[in-house]
Design a binder for these strands. Sequence first.
DNA 1: ATAGGGTTAG
Length: 680
Amino acid sequence: MLSSTLSRPSVKHLISTCRDPQTLAQIHALVILTGSLSHPQSPGRLIAAYARLGDIAAAQSVFKTTSSHNVSTWNSLIIAQSRYNSPAEVLRLYHLMLSDGRVRPDSSTFTVALKACAQLSDLKTAEEIKTHAFGSGYKHDVFVCSSLLNLYAKCGKMDEAMKLFDEMPMKDLVSWTTMIMGFVNVGRPLEAIGIYRKMRAESMEGDEVVMVGLIQACAAMGDVRMGRSIHGHMIRRCMRMDVVAETSLVDMYAKNGSLELAHLAFERMHCKNVVSWSALISGYAQNGLASDALQMLVRMQECGLQPDSVALVSALLACSQIGFLKLGKTIHGYIEKRLEFDQILGTAVIDMYSKCGCLSSARSLFDRVGLRDSISWNAMIASYGAHGHGKEALSIFLEMSETGLEPDHATFASLLSAFSHSGLVEEGRYWFHLMLQKFGIEPAEKHYACMVDLLARAGHVKEAHELIKSMVIKPGIAVWVALLSGCHKHKTLELGEYVAGKVLELNPDDLGIHALVSNVFAAGKRWDKVGEVRKAMKKMGMRKVPGYSLVEVNGKLHAFLVEDKTHPQHEKIMEMLERLDYEMRKMGYIPKTEFVFHELEEDVKERMLCNHSERLAIAFGLLNTSPGTRIVIIKNLRVCLDCHVATKYISKIVNREIVVRDVKRFHHFKDGVCSCGDYW
DNA sequence: ATAGGGTTAG
């Protein structure tokens, strides 16, 4: 008698403080031996304890062998499944509990079941649960209600959430947080901030989770100033700087281009995990700092952390930017060995191959990746487009339509751009028309820009102009520039001067655009205008973006700046270029200096052309690879007309395929011709 | 017995 009254509280204590499964099994045995198992709370405690220690099988087994279930046994198991991240199992057990009929679910049961619905975006089941919960007297239960708020938020129904939130008589920190996060996640950061203000007005203090919501809101609004002040607020209030909060700070700084602050916040983190690294890698990659991104990936591995798919997607993006095929392939191999391809990873690899010049590898991966969504299809359409295969882009588009996936504005942007890179005027007109008529997609600026480019470049300058005039939205600079380059190409000078004026009105900040405007005026001998443009350029202090080219040789990347004389192989490179120049001239090559934007003597201009970065990179590639090897060049500007002509000759002279990716598209030079058909 | 809110990607 005495022993059993003494043992009960101590067994309870033992169960709840036990820290390893072996000890728990011994306590379990003790519970059975002392007869404490017949105590109504004992099985529930054991289930919860096994679940807490990660032994879900033991928890299930205790549940199964318990003869009479009560709310505590049911809840313990359901909560265990919830922690185990099995929302479907949670709902199965919930329904089993209902059909058992002997036990009534309580606030915890409803709360966990609703959380499972949120994870599954299962609004229908959630409505049933809500009805049941509210009918059972939990209408004003703050746990049940915040689970519902979370559910609505996850399903994008913020207006529903707001309605319920307003009706809640008691709001606690979690309900406020749920609303803030909800607005952030549906892309309404201003309203998230608004909720926070209301919360403060009701004298509720935010904790670090609230701060994460606010930091994300700042990240979305691009408001680094406010982000910094929240960062300061957290420090002043001595908030817990856990890994999630610190990572969201890194991300906020990184997403908005404040990479020094991101890096600083990163270095000062108390504890880093794969996610924090990934956030920084992604920040570098998104901001075009490919080599920083890749260095961070190396550091992540040096720290003994396995990069996850998120880190690799960012690393692949970095490889794509700089044409680092060797590393991209290595990452691809790593994924094949250790990870599963999902759509995002698949698309990132496809994009990497395409942007590194390997269209066929992109395609074979596309064929192999089973699950495709509209973004993966889109990537493939865009890839064919960039490489100048408009017809293939169209056939991929048609294949996509057959699968039942609806094309969206991005799909059409890729498709129309593919047509414009291939000069497929008929196809362009047809699908542009169908885009609105059949698919109900209103053309945006980017679609118009593709069409104007396509039409004007093909010589239909008037039609292109008519299209602009028909635009409902105000034509932006991209559209006018497309028309202007058409006018320039086809010497439509009168319209050209008018369009040049339109372009100038829109205050372009791009030197290339000014050069085009100036060239159009020069063609019409409007020297006064030419002078004005140049003066304006000087006044704006516009400097030419220095051209550079990258080439991968034997797995290493080499960069060449325009007129770069510092390269260790400089003399050899110049020798090679002179030799090629000699051969080219024998074949009829005449340097085209009209795009050199300087008042210089002809021979100086000619020498400058030879110093264009892609020439240096090509020569270097030829010198350092075995005969027949394909050379891929990545260039940060557009290929100039002269380099284009010259590269065609070079491909024939050295009998090599030379692939050049410029800012607009790919050029595959082979046997004296370019895949773009001189149409770019 | 125990419950609800948080970080990175194409």
